[in-house]
Write a protein that binds this DNA or RNA. Structure first.
Lengths: 204, 204, 204, 204
DNA sequence: ACCTAAGCGAGACGGTACGTCTCGTCTTGCG
DNA sequence: CGCAAGACGAGACGTACCGTCTCGCTTAGGT
């Protein structure tokens, strides 16, 4: 956004200005990248976006809303493969997810969202909704495995997805999403064994 | 007595004052309980503890250090029973842990510690250390089950403990630690099944 | 530049609040009267004026500016009589000036201004400007005396005024502005003699 | 003062340590030179002198006492010549005095002493005493002139000295002690004329 | 030779002011 | 009416200095 753009962004009347929205979210994102979450103040965002504080507050009442706004623009789809066997699919899933989180600023954004959710109900709602979506998506790995007869009879696909997601979060929140992690391979192997043991088509 | 308290708080010379340390941590804890994390400002703590800001900063350089300080005083031991069978032990574990977290301010304290760890390396270190300790403790459930021959041959006790802890965290961070949760019972049952399936002594 | 002009014309923002200005100067003045210069802290002024520190700092960047602000509101005109003879006029001048300085808080205000000027260039500028004004005013005593033919031929009116003002300051700074001072009368008599000796109309 | 000197300066028993006194005054003086009066804090002096704050406070209860202490070590004698005529002697006096004040840190020291005296009674006492001494010294110029018959009959030597000193102060406090000042020459000439006019031996 | 008393460096302590920053609200005038 | 600009009250930030205190030491001078 250049200065002249900013200057021309005065008002479009009694409607929300898309140019301002973009300017504000751009400012928020660049501030996050440059100075971290602590640098994401409403003042700084307004200043950098050449927006008035009133405007920022009108559309993003708290800094958590800004975080969510940036996050929503950025959140990416994860390509899920369910070609089997389960262990391979699970490893693919974890590696794809960790790879996504390793891209700046996606992983940090999600960490911050989880952290913010511990204080802020709005952030909690946004985070919960996203988590549910991700869990549902993850569940497809297990429904596909079930269709292939790989799953043990006791396995509930939703519960299995929750276990996988919980482990992924745990790694994110404790800074263990580095690539080529041998522990990750062992963990996935162990997990798959628990879900497939006793199934007829296991590891077939 | 106020007088002797006051006099003993006056000064003990060029050594750290234990009375002040207690006063500051008490103040921090009560502020956390009353006004939440956002109310835990260095100013407010110093004011309530009748300590000078310099003293607070001398020993607790950031608000995260205060959080860790309060948390360290409060962190409780969890009574672990390994009488078997595994499913019962696991349910006991989750219910005891969630019960602990439901006590004010323990659960919030740990949530805040995890959240703070996402920005603050000191908090991350404290949190990581505590998490490791808790995971090791949790592992005993599984080693006992293994000794009883309940565990499936593929199960690694450390990995199993990590799964259990990750699930517990996930529930805490998404506000699902309410008592008498039927989902919890189902989850534990599902988990135990994965760990025991195929073992000779399973559900014996 | 057209660009900056355009931007500056786009919006002028909110205006300075006169009520706040008065409240701050009132607070500063009352604090000076009650607790002296050392009690004139920015914090205390903001507190008493129910103004935010940012506001105080916005308009009075240092406590010297507050001092100057209070002083500017208070500085009084001195009624000068030039009815002659010079000795009477001079005595009138010193007694009127010392009388003014004896009124709380004027004398202290000026002493503080002179003291502050020894560290602070802003205070020095304000003080210098005021001193020049006062000296010019004082000079009228001597120009009137010259018009009446009372002055010795060697006397430069500006230099004479400087001598008078320097003596007045000296008395202020060494705490000798008490009323009915016999020394003052002697000093003035001596001074007048030096300025008039040898003049045709002297003491006529 | 080297570090080892400082370390060996532990104590000489139940009497005041001259080494410490020197170290403290040296520290105060160098701080004044480097950072001005505002940098002359008790903490900084103690730190630089490797003295304890208690020791500094024991012997110099306020920072004004430090100022006076430094000033007393530094104050210099002024060589006074009374060879006549008065105008030359006066010009010599002013030029010698201004030359002294122009030497770092003497002029600033005296300005600060006068400023400090406006708040602090101790500083006022020290300053008053020094001023009296200087005035008495200055008076010798006029008594010598009187002995030579240069003085007009109305002139009181004490009053004349006060006028001279007041003018000198005025120049110091308003930053007009630069060398080779033509105004100074005019002022002195004017002053001398006032003191000598009508005397038999004037300009003899 | 011992004892007492004071001075000493060190630095923790309760306070409080510093000057800056952010918060969320409000006001002003342009488009 | 939305907008940029920005003043405002409130108050936290982290640093610095205030003056007081205790600590453990060193040493002078009296016993």
């Amino acid at each position: 956004m250049t200065d002249s753009e900013a200057r021309s962004r005065a008002s479009i009347g009694a409607r929300r200005s898309p140019a301002t929205e973009k300017a504000v979210l751009d400012a928020a994102e660049s501030l996050l990248a440059e100075t971290g979450y602590s640098g994401l103040s409403m003042d700084a965002v307004a200043r950098r976006a050449r927006a008035s504080k009133a405007t920022v507050y009108r559309w993003w009442p708290t800094r958590a809303h800004l975080l969510i706004g940036v996050y929503d623009r950025r959140k990416a789809q994860l390509a899920m493969r369910q070609s089997g066997p389960l262990e391979t699919d699970l490893l693919d899933f974890f590696e794809a997810l960790f790879g996504l989180w390793r891209q700046k600023p996606l992983g940090d954004l999600f960490r911050l969202l989880i952290a913010e959710a511990q204080f802020n109900p709005d952030a909690m709602a946004a985070m919960t909704q996203y988590a549910a979506e991700r869990t549902r998506q993850t569940e497809t790995i297990f429904t596909a495995a079930a269709a292939r007869g790989e799953l043990a009879p006791h396995v509930d696909t939703a519960a299995a997805a929750e276990v996988a997601v919980a482990l992924a979060w745990n790694h994110l929140l404790t800074n263990r999403i580095a690539p080529e992690d041998e522990d990750l391979r062992a963990m996935v192997s162990h997990l798959a064994a628990g879900f497939t043991c006793g199934a007829k088509g296991a590891a077939a």
